[in-house]
């Protein structure tokens, strides 16, 4: 389950009004989410939640659900 906060940050970076982001959604399925834009999304997520990811953690991300889990673990949820 993707939180509304995370969804808002991602969609704002991609200039999308709405998109059905699910846990298993992968970047190429979302319009505009390419490897170059990915960095902006990561930075926006870090800024929004006041957290810092390690490069290795980012390299392990496969889908939006993995990003949600990583954010939750950083926030101690």
């Amino acid at each position: 389950m993707i939180s509304q906060e995370l969804k808002t940050v991602i969609l704002k970076q991609l200039n999308l009004d709405d998109f059905d982001l699910q846990g298993e959604t992968i970047a190429p399925q979302v319009p505009g989410w390419d490897s170059l834009n990915h960095i902006n999304i990561i930075l926006a997520v870090e800024q929004k939640f006041g957290i810092k990811f390690k490069s290795r953690e980012l390299l392990q991300l496969k889908c939006v659900g993995d990003l949600q889990k990583l954010v939750d673990s950083k926030l101690g949820k």
Binding site: S35, H38, I39, I42, L43, F53, S55, L58, L59
Partner: peptide
């Protein structure tokens, strides 16, 4: 590319 991109992301 990704390891370099992530490490310089700021």
């Amino acid at each position: 590319f990704k390891p370099m991109q992530f490490s310089m992301r700021t």
